[in-house]
Design a protein around this nucleic acid. Structure first.
Lengths: 154, 154
DNA sequence: TGGAATTGGACTGATTCGGTCCTGGATTCA
DNA sequence: TGAATCCAGGACCGAATCAGTCCAATTCCA
């Protein structure tokens, strides 16, 4: 399938939304749910997780909401997706437990690992700040001249 | 989740296996199922689909089996994955019907489309022939000096 | 004719995804 | 003090899909 979940989409959408507000304003679940037609309880779960993972800070009570905990230029799409959907894996082989029964005789494991790393690099090269630009893939953080992708240090 | 299905894995594994046999020999479902510990009926379904999609030709009867219908250097991983798992989509937004309710107000659709295209290019740059090499990503078909991925004409 | 092989449909179980419902806490403001 | 607003988080459900099994038919060779 090679598809992001809707929750990951919601996470990226809301992070971008919050990023465009600047550091001083906060956005509530309700506000964003209505703006983008997302079911509020689900968005709430996503935002809670983004708080737990350190991307957002929350403010409770009236006029509360969420604001960014970090520079949007230092939040990569890969981090966000991992925080919400769990680890990004091209195949089951690459899980921690390596529960793949084939493992020992698999003839495509290592080639696919390279592909997997390349895909992660693509996702890592996009930041929340980039999402606000016209062409995020041409931004300063993405492709360098050598053809190697710039990896943002964790 | 951003993960391939097991069936797609099975497809790549068996295509590579068949490719290494050369054009003159064929491989049976049973042979490959035993070699890689894959349930035979499932592998059978995968192989049937690869025949229907034009990657393999089948030979029935005793000593039958499958052999490649095309040059392995002209079968890309993207094609195989698409044939087995269906279209590769980073998000639901990019389906033909565009059944995404947000679409109109989605603020990340276009940036993600670029990411989506980049991931497809990565998968398109790997061929079944490449899978047999030590480092498929350094092969002649992959990264050029400009940083743009070489796309194999359909 | 019988065995080995592909072809293909129907069905089941497990997992996960998307979503709803409900309760509890914290903050602000009248 | 009390109501309104907002975040926090657990329990639950339906639908989809993935992985796998089972069964029956067809083709080909010896």
């Amino acid at each position: 399938m090679l598809k992001l979940t809707k929750k990951a989409d919601y996470g990226l959408i809301s992070l971008k939304h919050i990023a465009t507000l600047g550091r001083e304003r906060s956005a509530s679940t309700k506000e964003m749910a209505e703006a983008y037609g997302i079911p509020a309880p689900i968005l709430s779960k996503v935002l809670q997780r983004l708080v737990r993972e350190g991307f957002l800070v929350s403010e409770q009570g009236v006029n509360g909401g969420y604001r960014l905990a970090r520079d949007p230029a230092r939040i990569t799409a890969l981090e966000v997706i991992r925080a919400i959907d769990g680890p990004v894996l091209l195949t089951n082989c690459f899980t921690a437990g390596s529960d793949c029964d084939i493992a020992g005789c698999c003839n495509v494991r290592e080639p696919l690992r390279k592909v997997h790393e390349r895909i992660q690099q693509v996702l890592e090269s996009i930041t929340i700040a980039d999402l606000s630009e016209d062409d995020p893939l041409r931004s300063s953080r993405s492709l360098g001249r050598t053809g190697a992708l710039t990896v943002i240090p964790g």
